[in-house]
Write a protein that binds this DNA or RNA. Structure first.
Lengths: 157, 157
DNA sequence: TTGACATCATTGCAAATGCAATGAATAACG
DNA sequence: CGTTATTCATTGCATTTGCAATGATGTCAA
């Protein structure tokens, strides 16, 4: 009973818990950008990732994107369908392996990316400016986390 | 036409885009911990956050948690209902303001937290160990991001 | 070749999510 | 007081999500 409000507990503070902090920061950053994309271009985060990857890597299969862009394959598939319906990408069966679907930007999709990229780059610059001299260290840590979690994402095994 | 596969485009690389990196890192970190909690304790991330906040701060209203723990109020409400059904927390109408619901850990809830906290702390230690000397810089950057986004979460606003 | 197994994209479906009511209670202000 | 706003927690509902089929293709070895 005395430990009901006993401050001498382990004293766990969620605010100092890295997974939580990471989650909140990511949520807010992605959400800020997501709102921009949604209201200005009608594009979701998943769709943005697919477009960005296509802009960067040319024709790719759904499977490639799934692995490359940290998106469930059903999410990629549905995003691709919406993008195709919007005329932003084209789907084509790979002639070499007919199980694969090659996605590629249409001219309209490329034009949209030309509008969206400056927004993304501006957002990135904004973040770097806000972090200032902390940016380098932050990115280094982030990189190390991403490297470690590349396949196994459970640090305590 | 020539820019179909022209590498001289803006050359945007999603992998260097901080919001994306942050999102992937957060997703993987949270998911690793989430799996542990789910399989070992049957607890979701939202439920974990509610429990952790209660353990740390004693009785709190749903509203408090919503603000404090970066969770939609409907999510808090539903998490609280599940936790109550599981006998881990108690809900009580605040006598001073009967709109508020005071949440508090039951003995069973406190016992569960006593089991879960070491797991969380171990996870945290693991992360710190993996980051090594990059941890301090990483946390500093993260803190700066969180500060900046406290109310307005759109850096390019 | 043929048959067992693997891989790919899509889709069905149950569960989770976000947002906009809803209803209860309080605060603000004349 | 009485009336109008505001705050709080919950819930309804449409959308999104994740996961497990499904079907269509490819691979490999007997």
């Amino acid at each position: 009973m005395e430990d009901q409000d006993d401050p001498a507990l382990p004293g766990f503070d969620l605010d100092r818990f890295t997974p939580y902090r990471l989650s909140v920061a990511a949520e807010r950053a992605s959400e800020g950008l997501a709102r921009l994309y949604r209201v200005r271009f009608g594009i979701s985060v998943a769709e943005w990732r697919v477009l960005a990857h296509l802009e960067h890597s040319g024709n790719v299969s759904v499977r490639d994107i799934e692995a490359r862009v940290a998106l469930e394959k059903s999410k990629v598939s549905r995003a691709a369908s919406r993008l195709e319906a919007a005329g932003l990408i084209a789907k084509a069966v790979d002639p070499a392996d007919r199980r694969l679907v090659q996605l590629s930007l249409t001219p309209k999709g490329r034009a949209l990316m030309a509008e969206m990229l400056p927004v993304a780059l501006g957002f990135q610059e904004e973040i770097e400016a806000r972090l200032g001299d902390a940016f380098a260290g932050f990115e280094q840590g982030l990189q190390r986390l991403l490297d470690d979690m590349e396949d196994k994402d459970d640090p305590s095994a």
